[in-house]
Nucleic acid binder design. Structure first.
Lengths: 206, 206
DNA sequence: ATCATCAAATGAGCACCGTTCAATAGATTA
DNA sequence: TAATCTATTGAACGGTGCTCATTTGATGAT
């Protein structure tokens, strides 16, 4: 039997990782997490299933890496939106719009992030954690700016909660629960909640 | 070949449905949506795979029915919590605690609700929609009560947003994102947001 | 230049999954 | 009792993720 091919070195390890991530990210965008298959990724890049496992360890870890890639793209998208409105624009509205727009434009990427659960015995790699922190950082900076305050514990605590609030509205909007409950504009409602909270804090600490 | 057994009528159709739902719900509780298998449900109730498909049409529709069952249990749980605090207790706190407690005590049921996506060509049955509406109804009533107002469009709109807010905080808490961002008590934060919003509305319409 | 060593890549094999559908046998009706 | 009906079956099919003995290209030593 002539079965194994041994090391080919068509690509370096780093190139191979990028190849897999790139093809995998495109596949998630196309078919969503439900239709995702590590085998299909292997097929598309012309490597075998075994190679995917060699490089990423498991399908779950590959998906985690793909979701981190989505987070990074999302953070970049938010930065662009903020850049576009400029220093005097409505930066909070841009931030909320950026959250929703990313979810609407890249629904499969977005739902994959929140639908995927790592097995209990697995945890995020440091690279994954770092990538996912970018988004939080952007929001923290904007909240500090909106409150004319330095980035302190209060601002971080508040940002966390505001992200959760916007996320809840966005998750319901994308998942259909918002419409099921008879709602129309989830984004506007989310923005109203954000303004409300920030103005409550402003009153509080004045 | 001696293969098929034909109709046995050990159970009526309704009994069979209940048998499948009951075993399926227990299986989801045990292994989560990721480990769920319609074949395993069939095995546990002593019927064949084919029967599950005869009764529910597809694995996705079975899961939708199981999630509806979770919603109904959740609504009952909330009612108990409200009953327990009584008319003069902190009913809003009970509601938020009930939301979080259900998710914490029945994590697999809770995550299954939000992780599952019906295929694009399938939609919820009317029974499913009704079951899921129970929870909204409970919150609407409590919000009206908190504001000393009748149940009108304003109250419904507000309730929708408050559910989304609490959901966002709970989703992050259960999913680990809250801790990843350095947060500690998501429930307390969610309750603070709810109080804030309700007091803003009270000021507004006075 | 040759050889031994090493590790990257393979893919058949395994145990599972959901879905389909012809065959069957128990219940019902004639 | 016989004919009909239909609930139930489970093999078959095409997929999945994961494992690991095997192979072979590249590397380092002689």
């Amino acid at each position: 039997m002539v079965l194994a091919m041994g090391r080919r070195s068509d690509h370096t390890r780093a190139e191979l990782e990028e190849l897999i991530l790139s093809a995998g990210h495109a596949l998630v965008a196309e078919v969503g997490l439900g239709g995702f298959s590590a085998r299909e990724v292997a097929r598309q890049i012309g490597y075998s299933i075994g190679t995917i496992h060699n490089v990423f360890g498991s399908s779950d870890r590959l998906i985690a890496a793909l979701n981190t890639r989505s987070f990074v793209a999302w953070a970049a998208f938010l930065r662009e939106q903020l850049e576009a409105v400029g220093d005097d624009g409505d930066r909070l509205a841009a931030l909320v719009a950026g959250y929703f727009d990313f979810a609407r434009q890249h629904t499969h990427w977005w739902t994959a992030i929140y639908d995927h659960r790592l097995p209990a015995d697995t945890s995020l790699s440091e690279a994954d954690e770092a990538g996912r922190g970018l988004l939080t950082g952007i929001v923290v900076d904007e909240v500090a700016r909106a409150l004319s305050r330095p980035v302190d514990e209060t601002v971080v605590t508040l940002s966390r909660s505001l992200i959760a609030t916007v996320h809840g509205h966005c998750a319901f909007a994308i998942g259909g629960a918002w419409a099921l409950m008879g709602g129309s504009d989830a984004e506007a409602t989310a923005l109203a909640r954000v303004r409300e909270t920030l103005s409550a804090v402003t009153l509080d600490t004045r």
